[in-house]
């Protein structure tokens, strides 16, 4: 017996998917096609003139040092990896701590989850206020109590550290919720059996709990990398605006800045085409190769 439902009219199934297809075409395929088209031109923003330049826009990105595109690539990778590892490690640690029977655990959970409700832009502002070299509370403490000169407006490492902290802080709650849910679905009898066999807490965690968490971990890895690469725009925009110099100008920030502020439509389109290829590539790699090693 077949579970498939068969439509009587041949036209109807197509019509039913049509609205979705229209949305996909209008909002995804059409702009993507336009970006690819525009990336081969030098264009006046008002649309008056269009000069075909071949792959000049792409060549400029990679071979003209003043475009700093390669630097932008590097800093994006460093930043995304730093955000992913920092926020995942911390949230796993916190989730393991909260997952024990203890007083006030509901309170801790609530406190750990609430940053997720903060808009990314606002998270950026909060961190900026604390670390503002001129009026920030923590910058003041660092300087006057610990003797550390905090000047992320000129110090590249500090700038990178600041946006990493801000972006990770925002993401910890999200990871925490998933890790906690994952931990709660680990069967208690397995852990108990291991305990009876004489395995200590550390060993129980790494040999039983952590492998059982791997689907969650894998999912979060994907989500965090995507977040680090593509969704941290508001934090960079708010906290460093790509500075000092161009040192924290990550790919998504640069594509916006060049296109929207500087009105370089051709160069910005070329960048978005590269981003598109990058996203497609990342997705393929993650689901083809990494997912195979995960125990579900």
């Amino acid at each position: 017996m077949s579970n498939q439902y068969e439509f009587k009219s041949r036209l109807l199934p197509y019509l039913l998917v049509l609205p979705q297809m229209v949305i996909v075409v209008v909002f995804f395929f059409w702009p993507s096609a336009q970006a690819i088209w525009q990336s081969f031109f030098l264009q006046d923003p008002f649309g008056g003139r269009l000069i075909f330049v071949g792959i000049d826009n792409y060549l400029k990105l990679f071979f003209d040092p003043s475009s700093s595109y390669v630097d932008s690539f590097q800093v994006s990778i460093i930043f995304a990896l730093a955000v992913t590892s920092l926020s995942m490690c911390l949230s796993l640690f916190l989730a393991v701590q909260v997952n024990r029977k203890m007083k006030l655990s509901t309170f801790y959970k609530t406190m750990l989850i609430w940053p997720y409700a903060v808009a990314t832009m606002v998270a950026g502002v909060l961190w900026l206020f604390m670390f503002n070299p001129n009026v920030g509370v923590i910058a003041w403490l660092l300087k006057h109590q610990l003797g550390i000169e905090w000047q992320h407006l000129l110090n590249t490492n500090q700038a990178l550290l600041l946006i990493t902290m801000a972006a990770s802080w925002k993401q910890i709650s999200y990871n925490f919720v998933f890790f906690l849910a994952g931990l709660q679905s680990v069967p208690a009898d397995l852990v108990e059996a291991a305990a009876i066999d004489g395995a200590g807490p550390v060993r129980r965690f790494w040999t039983i709990v952590f492998p059982l968490l791997s689907p969650t971990t894998f999912y979060l890895l994907v989500m965090n990398l995507v977040y680090g690469f593509f969704e941290t725009f508001p934090i960079v925009h708010q906290v460093t605006a790509g500075g000092p110099g161009k040192s924290t100008s990550i790919l998504v920030y640069k594509v916006w800045r060049d296109g929207v502020i500087n009105l370089d439509l051709g160069g910005s389109s070329a960048q978005s085409v590269i981003l598109m290829i990058l996203v497609i590539g990342l997705t393929v790699i993650q689901f083809r190769f990494i997912e195979r090693r995960v125990n579900y």
Partner: peptide, 9 residues
């Protein structure tokens, strides 16, 4: 602006 920051840095 960017180059000025690089000078100061």
């Amino acid at each position: 602006d960017q180059t000025w920051e690089d000078i100061l840095g």
